[in-house]
Amino acid sequence: MMLYYIYDGTFEGLLTAIYDAYYERENPELIVAMDNFTDNFLIQRRYIDTDEKKATKVHNGIINKISEDALTNIMYAYLSEHENAGKYILEYLRFGFKVGRLVDSYLSDDRVHNIHKLARKVSRERHLLLGIIRFRLLSNNIYYAPIDTQYNTACLLGDHFAARMADQIFVIHDVKRNYGVFYDKSKWFISDIDTKGNLDLHEKELFYQELWKKYFESTTIKDRLNPKLQSHFMPKRYWKYLVEMK
């Protein structure tokens, strides 16, 4: 029988699972979010009860006994939604509690390498998104940016845009995961989104979109066309909401 840990999909749930595995010396084959779990008869299931106290203990333990970087790393790995993320995080933390602060120097150790690989993917997508999300001004004066991302990166965008677009109300909408990053000119927060509402564009919106498209076309050097390079930097999967690629 393969032992699977099944948690509620939250970061706290995952930390609780780590706590249970650590203190009960279990080696689950997989630590999987409820929504991604598919059952078969070879699996022994263990449902994790998300427990804030346990989660906090793990959280603090990481910061005190390993490092803040390690916490960032597992957070990013978690956001990758990779099916093995939970298991990799458990292995990384077990190793981290053994070797402490220097864990991230073990670059060629699989327990560390796996986490770094996932974290780097998420981090790259986040950086790309900082540049390529596009706000549209709606008739109610809200700047609205729909995104369709590979990883769960929307929640990593709040700080950046709240500091930058400090004087405008905005929403970044993760269309696939149905939640949004909201900013109301004083603070940002995350909330579910009801997509039934109508999105009327501001009367000036299309004017600026046209100007931007014209700029995009005009700044291209036609003697040096290299569309392969273009999609290398800006993969096609992100073009859907890019004003200039329509």
Binding site: G131, I221, K222, L229
Partner: peptide, 13 residues
């Protein structure tokens, strides 16, 4: 931060 890439592969910042 790069904000887009034109068909010549250059970034627009």
């Amino acid at each position: 931060i790069c904000h887009s890439w034109t068909p010549d592969g250059r970034c627009i910042s």
